[in-house]
Amino acid sequence: MAKTGTIVELSDWELVQRCQQGQVSAFQELVSRHYQKVFVVVQGIVNHREDAMDIVQDTFLRVYRKISGFKGDSSFYTWVYRIAVNLAIDFKRQKKRAPMELAERGEGYDEPVEDPDRIGSDPGRDLQRKEIERRLLAAIADLTPDHKAVIVLRAIEGLSYKEISRLLGCSEGTVMSRLHYARKRLLEKLDSVI
């Protein structure tokens, strides 16, 4: 990707202001800064790589279309996350309403991806790690979209309860109880391996 030396040094807010003046290259820089983390969060919620790609693309398209109205009341990434998480949650709810369609399309959840760098010399330990990952992914898939959203935002981004509550439009108490419930459910599913 071609980047000018000036653009990469600008803050998110300065880039937003350039976008508002119609500078597409500034938006390209914003996308390049945030797409990976947004993708991780979205995939954590929808649990499907291709669907996550579509949602991330849709997220940035919406961001671009609405960026003229962005006043900087929150940080840019919080705003982007809010749109992405809401799209992902709505997507999961729609999918839940159409399980037959999902089955007919032959789609399922992603299996854990093996990272070659992490393959060690201890086969027993690798096997246990893979088992934990497999169970963990299955346990995450069983959570509701709202519970997935809080646990993913906390695990990936380390956001505070206040930030998560602002992002999801719920109270801090709700975030705390959802996190507590989600962790409890995940631990139950991993009970025999950890």
């Binding site: 990707m1 597409v24 390209q28 996308v31 390049s32 797409y35 990976q36 993708f39 991780v40 995939q43 954590g44 790589r49 996550a52 790609m53 991330v56 693309q57 940035f60 398209l61 671009y64 992603d110 854990p112 991806v113 990272d115 992490r118 934990i132 990952e133 963990l136 992914l137 995450i140 646990i151 993913v152 695990a155 990936i156 962790r183 995940l186 631990l187 991993l190 950890i194």
Partner: peptide
């Protein structure tokens, strides 16, 4: 352990997403 495993699993599954594949469609 759970928090660390969650972060590791979620991040490893999302590795390797090319910028061009996202930006191309958005652009």
């Amino acid at each position: 352990f759970l928090d660390a495993a969650l972060k590791r699993v979620l991040e490893s599954r999302s590795a390797g997403v090319a910028f061009e594949s996202i930006w191309g469609a958005v652009e």
